[in-house]
Each structure stands twice: as structure tokens, then as C-alpha cells.
Amino acid sequence: MASKLQILTEREADILILVPEGRIDSSNASDFEREMNTHIDNGDVNLVVDFSRLSFISSSGMRVLLIAAKRVRRGGKLVLCSMRDSIREIFSISGFDAIITVVKSRQDALSV
């Protein structure tokens, strides 16, 4: 059964950190999109998505990140961190790592 996507949120100064858990696929990408849009609508434009608890993401989840990056590009930034190798590979194949900042660790993400 599909289960609602769990996303932990933390704040560090003006940066909002989102930590999605498990999988983002076509059955729950809409949860992810709703959550990202809510934060951006509320004025959060400096966003970090920490992938450390994410084991899987498909193109439906990557689409949400692209939309968010486009929305915050004037005046803010979306940074992704802590990806496992198999996820990092698909960001590279899709050319996303050329347009969305991907860094190794949470610490690096907060200092971009």
C-alpha cells in the first residue's frame, strides 16, 4: 500500500531543511510537491533537501525538485545533500546536477 511520505523539517537560521524518508515515487510525489509548495508559498526560499533517509526517488520526485528550484531561483536557492551513489547517478544522467546544487554533506549544504 502507498503510505504518506514522511518529511522531517528543521531550521538553521533562514534555511529550511527537509528530510524525506523512504521512497519518493509516483504514488507519493504529490505529497512531496504539496509540502515543497507550502513552504515556498510561506516565504521559505532557501531550502536544503537532505537525502540521507531517502532510499529511492523516481523521475516523479525529481520533477518536484525541478519545479521547486525554478520557483526559488530568484532570491533563494535549493541545495541537495547526502545522496547515496545510486541516486547521485540518476541526477547526473538527467543533467540535474548542472542546474541544481548537489553537495556531499549537510554541513556543505548549509555553507553554500
Partner: peptide, 16 residues
């Protein structure tokens, strides 16, 4: 390859 502003949304799945 387009930059962020012009990158189309979608069409990635089959490419992967």
C-alpha cells in the same frame, strides 16, 4: 542541457 529557467519539466523517466 538548458539552464534552470528554461529546463522543461518532464520526459526524464524513459531517458533514465
Amino acid at each position: 542541457t538548458s539552464d534552470l529557467a528554461d529546463r522543461p519539466i518532464g520526459g526524464l523517466g524513459l531517458h533514465l
